[in-house]
Design a binder for these strands. Sequence first.
DNA 1: CTGAAAGCGCTTACAG
DNA 2: CTGAAAGCGCTTACAG
Lengths: 345, 345
Amino acid sequence: MEDNRGIPARKNATLKDVAEACGLSVAAVSRYLNHSIKLPQSTTDRIDAAIAALNYRPNPHARSLSLGRSETIGLVVPDIANPYFAHLAAAVEQAAAEYGLGLLLCPTLSRTDRELDYLGRLSRQHVDGLLFVTNNGDDPALARALLGAKTVVLVDDDIDGTTAPTIMADSEQGGRLATALLIEQGHRSLAYVGGPQGLSSSRSRLRGFRRAIAESGQTIAIAAELHGPYSSAHGRIAAEQLLALDPVPTALFAASDEIALGVLSVFKQRGVKVGVDISVIAFDDVGPLELFDPPLTAIRQPVNAMGRRAVQIVLALINGEALLPATELLPVELIIRNSVKPPNR
Amino acid sequence: MEDNRGIPARKNATLKDVAEACGLSVAAVSRYLNHSIKLPQSTTDRIDAAIAALNYRPNPHARSLSLGRSETIGLVVPDIANPYFAHLAAAVEQAAAEYGLGLLLCPTLSRTDRELDYLGRLSRQHVDGLLFVTNNGDDPALARALLGAKTVVLVDDDIDGTTAPTIMADSEQGGRLATALLIEQGHRSLAYVGGPQGLSSSRSRLRGFRRAIAESGQTIAIAAELHGPYSSAHGRIAAEQLLALDPVPTALFAASDEIALGVLSVFKQRGVKVGVDISVIAFDDVGPLELFDPPLTAIRQPVNAMGRRAVQIVLALINGEALLPATELLPVELIIRNSVKPPNR
DNA sequence: CTGAAAGCGCTTACAG
DNA sequence: CTGAAAGCGCTTACAG
């Protein structure tokens, strides 16, 4: 029993130190720690005491090397500064921690080379699994690289030509709900300001948009269907385009919060009153939309549920459990605020 | 030379495989890879070819175990879903990647036990260094644990009684700039809605607030100095308190974006017009404040510079370089928008 | 059940 | 300069 208060340990205790301290073999202690052995209470007490006295904690690298896994997963996202991904990361980390997994952050800035690089880390067992969010789902090189990866779950979007399990929000239903609200409020000239044309998430939101129109039984003009990155820059460009239209549509559905931000900033700048001159509904609902001018109506993505579910599935994959259904769609929710009003023309 | 297109490698190539493939010892290849040897061009070509053919990549755990370091740092933050920390994480990750360091995400939800746990991971060499953001800087247990940690840099706030290098924004200057703007616009009754009283960041912002008042040469009433967590919940409570005052102050300085969000939501709910009934200035400037109603004036923290600088310093610490000045203050910036106007009473 | 020993895949002090 | 070998700290198949 050593007295080590205050003084930083000269050297970390190893399993060997613990074993010696209580007169056992390292194997016995290791087995005890990994719950693969049953020992008499008196012995386990001795081990616990030695661990406490020596302040022993296993070296994770030795463990990883020996085990061939790291008990760490990676979260591959385009940009962690984006509030949507930040929320996703928080949800993922929390779920991962509950399952004893560490989380390595892998932001790609949407660069395919970085995405491939992180996939490489997976095969080197740097991480045991990867939660993969990409805006390059239409890149064949990515799809090819993904084929060899057995413990990847796609989040938020799928990738053409892969069979990896996928967790997504029900984007089509979201697009449908959003558009139905616009129609219900009386709008008859609508625009879709979408994400990248190649991405399934944006295609689904567009499908929902069209479907709500078809289902309405009304004569609705589709003033525009615009595509581009899920960015505020794209939102700004789209807003300019819409304002140049004649007539300007009376309502628009923006496929992400970020796009809506860009749209709103142009409208604000040009004096276009949201909810009066034009109604706007967004998709994601992660920003402080309730504080916007006016508070923004949006479709809320189930970020927490998606993060948690993705962790569960990657863990099942890591443990070699039976294949799960290829794609899971999680329900979205309509959050009504003040940016959708009946048209005033 | 193997043909492995399409087929996932049966097993990852090791250094031994590479060495055998080109008739060298593992030591030679290892040294070459670590740049601690000079080999003839013909030899290095052979090695490079073998590495490419076998698709060799070093096993990071073996390397870490052998080296006693992991080339990974951890970022300890209260909550990654908070936009301020999300931006910080993005900046840190980018800088870390440039220096070849991985980034492990360590969110604490401000729980001291989790903070201590992450500190433990550091001593187990799970990570080589830690960038540490905490709201518990006044907790003596934390300070004690930090004493033994040689490769920690404190970010954003310091911890009482530690000597760890610290990177912070110049909060006092920020508080001073913010308050000076309010005074300059004619306000004579001000409130400070601050962060936790025990935290140096909030104390500094308060110091700046008082200093600007003292320096103004005007007679200024300090209507309130409120303290609480850097959260929107605290902002909401504070807003209620301020509105209950008689007279209500004509302007307030909120010590974080989050606090401002809470304040604004109460004001919105109660019909208090920001910029008309009361002026508001925030601190952080990471949210889309320009889209708020009205666009929010704020002090901008140099998040990118802080993240980058913190990585540089932790790296210097890891490399055992000479101690650097204890605390670095990075300059803040006043971003004028529309939430501060002259008082109308 | 238990322990001695091999093995995970690297790095590097040491001897040639 | 170069290679054989030890060592990093675990886990676990194997033999007792």
